[in-house]
Structures are given as structure tokens and as C-alpha cells.
Amino acid sequence: MPVDLSPEALEKGETMIQAKQLVKNYDAFRAVDGVDFDVQKGECFGFLGPNGAGKSTLMKMVYCFSPRSAGELSIFGLDPDLKPAEIKNRIGVVAQTDNLDEQVSVIQNLEIYAGYFGLSRRETKNKIQSLLGFMALEAKSKARIKELSGGLKRRLVIARALLNDPEILILDEPTTGLDPQVRHLIWAKLRELKGQGVTLLLTTHYMEEAHELCDRLLVMDKGKVLDSGKPRDLVQKSMPPYVLELPATLQKNLGALPTAVHMEAHGDKLFLYSTSPDVLEKVAVSLSGEFRIRTTGLEDLFLKLTGRDLHDSD
């Protein structure tokens, strides 16, 4: 069935972003290869994948930075090739790199950026005050960018992306390289924004982040979609609920495994999966040493779907 991408149809279902068979080629290299997805108003939609999976390229297409090579894409029912300024006026973008104006202060960075959205002087002043408060940056408002830590810069970039009251906030690996405190602060702020009805679109390779924030996930690798759905459903439908991790050196000590146990060997580790923790418990006690049985999660799913081999980083 052809997808109705008219503004009226999207308004009804509150579909904010719709992509059909989206393709991006860089010369001979295909970075995004026939991806379908839709993002509904008010949800947090996540792209999960290893480095080089095509997540950032996909984001760049959505925020009208990178024109698509083939397929259909609409944001607010508008075509990014035809109406980039209209779309960009209504979204906020936190790119992977901070791209701040290093020479000037925190407040000047925000003033400059507000200008790009045509905010009046009064709007700019009020908005900056409330955003500095929201991201807990008041004490640093006069500091130059060079004096800020990585976490502060990230908070500023998020504040900057909120200047135009975006309907969709796009975040490309928002917490990569940050310490746990900052990461939790950012997660809390993103949840708060979601509570206010802001639609969130984010990429990550942190399973914890995907689990904390995302209502729906799309797992990608090498430009293709591997699976999609709610985080819990994704794990449940393709993984047994329990796993026992063992060093590979213990393989020779294992006797015949019960039929209810499925074993996979990856690198220097063995992964024993089962629907029953008791069965795994029996295997564990037959070995000398402390081994913990844990529930399977996104990390296991991610590694299963994308393979446990090392990927070339991008």
C-alpha cells in the first residue's frame, strides 16, 4: 500500500517523520540502504548500531544537511529537498561534534544562534535565561567555550538546540564520552522535554541509553535495518531471557549441556542462553569459580544482531 505523505494525513496520525526505502550513496559507498521508519509525535525514537552503521548519515538526511540519493522522506509532511528552511525552523539538532563558536562566551553563543532563527532581542533574552537555568549553566554564562569541560559544552549544545522551541529534537550520540553524572543529568532533561511533548530522535551505541530513553528502537548495521520495535519486545522476541557468561578456557570443563541450553562462543567468552535460570545454575555450580547468571538485555541482542566481531570505526 502506498504511504500517504500529505500533510493532512500525517496531521491525523501525528506522524512527525516518515521514511520509505531511504538510500544515501557517497560515490560508490552506500551508507544507508533502503531504510523504512516512522516517528510519531511525542515519542522517543532511537537508532542503535555500531560505528559506521549509517545512523549519523540518516540523522543528517532528517535534519536536511545531506540530500537523499533515493527513497521518500518527509518531516512534518514536508520534503527536506524542497522545504529545508521550514523544517529546520521547527527542529533542534544536537550533532555529534559540538561546533560551538570557541572565541566567544556561553551567552554570546546562544545569542548568535538565536539570530539564525530570527528571534527578537526580547525573545532571545528570555529564552536564554530560561535555558541557562534548565541546563544548569547560569554560573558559566560569561565563560568562554575554551574554559568549559566536555560535559558543560554538551549541555550548552543542547540548550542551543532548544532556542527555537523545537517540535522534534534530534540528538546524534548525545552522551558519548561523558561521565555518568552528566549522562544522567542529560537523560533526565531529555525525559523532561519528552514530558512536554517534544518528539525525540536519537542515535546511540549505549544500550543503557537506548533502554532509559527510547520508546521504540531501530537496530542498524551497514546501512540496513536489522530489527525494530520496543526495547523490551526486541529482546524478548529474539533472545532467551537468561544468560551465563564464561571464559572460553572453561569450554573443556563443560560436560554435555542440557538441551535447554544454547551455547555461543565469541572471542574469549562463552555465552550460555536458556529460558530457565535453574538449568544455568546447575551448569554454573558444576564449574569451579563464581559465575553470575543475568537476564539478557539489549547489549546481548545488539551483539547478536550486529555480530560480535570488531567493526571498523567510522
Binding site: F65, L100, Y116, R160
Partner: peptide, 14 residues
Amino acid sequence: MDHNYDSMMVTPLG
């Protein structure tokens, strides 16, 4: 180096 234009391109600027 500083990728300042990248941050401008995600606003209504072209």
C-alpha cells in the same frame, strides 16, 4: 577545523 558552518546549516540558514 571548527565546523562552524555545520552548526549554522541545522538552522533555517542555507
